[in-house]
């Protein structure tokens, strides 16, 4: 069964097992490798993408449910908030190994897209599901605050 959807602004037809998680379709079939596999059971957030404007764990999202959906991955996020987040990430030296960071950046950008001036508690809440095994958390908090400041200005 072929599924038609939009990925990063392009129309895409995925002719794969409808049970295949979006994660593996993106990586193996569309070669969009920025989205990462960490757990496969919605426990780490490394696979976070935007699905119809909301963050989504692509590892537990079957392709068969996505007909007509609009997917955005780390390779294409480009809102003001996303750019501010990425600039702050570089400036504050957030990444260590970097493996979780696509998911962190997508999640942080999604937060600032809807809430450009989050409180510390809102930041903690929004980011709580994204594991960083290198524990770059203090810098993630700091970078989101910095990005938020640049958005205001």
């Amino acid at each position: 069964m072929a599924v038609n959807l939009t990925v990063n602004g392009k129309d895409v037809t995925l002719d794969v097992d409808p049970d295949m998680p979006l994660l593996w379709a993106l990586r193996d079939h569309l070669r969009l490798t920025g989205t990462k596999y960490g757990c496969g059971i919605a426990q780490c957030g490394a696979c976070t993408v935007m699905l119809d404007g909301q963050t989504r764990r692509s590892c537990v999202t079957p392709v068969g449910t996505l007909d007509g959906a609009k997917v955005e991955t780390i390779e294409a996020i480009e809102s003001e908030a996303a750019k501010a987040v990425q600039a702050a990430w570089v400036d504050i030296n957030v990444p260590q190994c970097g493996y979780c960071q696509s998911g962190q950046v997508v999640t942080a950008a999604a937060l600032l897209d809807v809430n450009p001036k989050p409180t510390d508690a809102e930041i903690d809440n929004a980011m709580a599901g994204n594991v960083c095994r290198c524990a770059t958390y203090t810098r993630i908090r700091q970078a989101i605050r910095q990005a938020s400041d640049t958005l205001e200005a």
Binding site: R27, D28, R31, T33, G34, T35, K36, Y37, T73, I74, E75, Q86, W89, V90, D91, N93, V94, P95, G98, Y99, Q101, S102, V105
Partner: peptide
Amino acid sequence: TRLDGHAKSTGQAMFTIDVFRDDMEV
């Protein structure tokens, strides 16, 4: 600033899992 910071903040850094070869089997 870390030399790998940009690549790792934009999904472009190449990890082992990101390597694809022609006719590669998983």
